[in-house]
Nucleic acid binder design. Sequence first.
DNA 1: CGGAACTTTGACACATATCAAAGTGTGTGG
DNA 2: CCACACACTTTGATATGTGTCAAAGTTCCG
Lengths: 266, 266
Amino acid sequence: MATSIPIRITTARRHAPDDSAAAPSPEKVASCATICSSCNLRELCAPCCGLTRSEMDIADRLVFNRSRLRRGEILYRSGDRFTSLYAVRDGFFKSTALIENGREQLTGYAMTGEVLGMDGIAPERHTCTAIALEDSEVCAILFAGLQEVAQAIPSLQRQFHRMMSREIVREQWVMLLLGRMSAEERLAMFLLNLSRRFLAHGHPPSEFNLRMTREEIGSYLSLTLETVSRTFSQFQQEDLIRVQQRFVRILDRAGLERVIGRGEQR
Amino acid sequence: MATSIPIRITTARRHAPDDSAAAPSPEKVASCATICSSCNLRELCAPCCGLTRSEMDIADRLVFNRSRLRRGEILYRSGDRFTSLYAVRDGFFKSTALIENGREQLTGYAMTGEVLGMDGIAPERHTCTAIALEDSEVCAILFAGLQEVAQAIPSLQRQFHRMMSREIVREQWVMLLLGRMSAEERLAMFLLNLSRRFLAHGHPPSEFNLRMTREEIGSYLSLTLETVSRTFSQFQQEDLIRVQQRFVRILDRAGLERVIGRGEQR
DNA sequence: CGGAACTTTGACACATATCAAAGTGTGTGG
DNA sequence: CCACACACTTTGATATGTGTCAAAGTTCCG
């Protein structure tokens, strides 16, 4: 069943209708500067922020192209030509990789403040598909421009390297999760991780709405939707959480952390 | 059982005895240049190669520190302060990540021509442990230096970004492998991948000695050593390969590729 | 209200882990 | 050069976690 590509996905792409030109212009950058100052990507997407005026001058090589996507819309597809990284200004994305045959693996979720698309740099094509899980807004950063600017501004360059490295480390964790953990542990990690990210973005960490279906969670954790559901029920019985459809309340954080330790000693 | 840290691992670290000073010196770089010209890392570890003389002048900020490791020696440990990337000049390494409890996951193998340690950039500590699986030689590249040089030489900078991106893509494949593939498929992929890498480094692609034990293969693929062994035997029965201890001959490459397709359609 | 999409729960199947024991090198010391 | 030990591999029997299939339940939305 997972073979079929979700049909509800519209084909609308990038470039929100209200966002016009793609050509670099001082005007554009200026407006970007104001936008960025209120953006909580400051650290990640640093180019507009924390720079001196002269550095700022250099930064006009960078074109920012904001766009809005609605739930289900595709930011980029596997195979698309790579031109930009995307900073998630607001919203929630999933990214999935697929191999020749029909199989797919969710490679990650990106929420507000995170950056998508780093997989495309070397192959110059995206190797996965990024889909908005809720109405979202991204800031497209032309990679060629970013590289040029990074060339001139060491702090930005370092920032960018750290960002890529963080992605590598994050993926190593996922490998550990997929390779060495039981269903209970995977789901506990998933919930705690999600909670941490919500907290980091100013949302209540112990009470949130999942933006994804059981099937999507299962795809990320490499479990079937049934196993995800059963494990949720089990956690609820153990009074670790309270679930009601997409709504989750974490009742016993320490308990969830203990779940992760259960299978250890191997 | 896997809890215990392999005892045979010696504690000898980095810096082979013959390699002395760590201070940058023109002399050092000069000798490096000759070394690199005969090094098959040209593309990856580009700094010494394909550069103009003036770029070369800049490159003297880079300190290379070659060192030899014997089978079982540790290049760096998880938690070690991160200072350098390591280009594998010759040999074979595995790198393992571990979580609090005793569990570990092999995150990859690196052979001649590949680069280790990119996970350490953001945390400024290594997040995994790299161990030589055979007598090996690496070229340590001070990261601070690399960053400085990359700042000045765009082509090097791009090269470096591609390298990190490639690592991200590679890990996505491993996620797919761990998350979505059966034991047969994992082992087939492993063999074909290994074969491709041997070919790329000028070794016969259909006949090679595994540098790792069944347990290590299992750790990488997240299978038990028994399952690895059984699957080898099965492949042999199907006349796909011939195995004898560590020696492997690939008899039917197309057949192995077909194995990877078996489980698809999901 | 009806239907679609999603979730929950149950019964059963199956791949892989686990436990156990025998087999095969390979290097070391007598 | 043998033989003993050790580390690794193979194979078998059994256990178990998760997938698969099926059906009923819930929520959402037109």
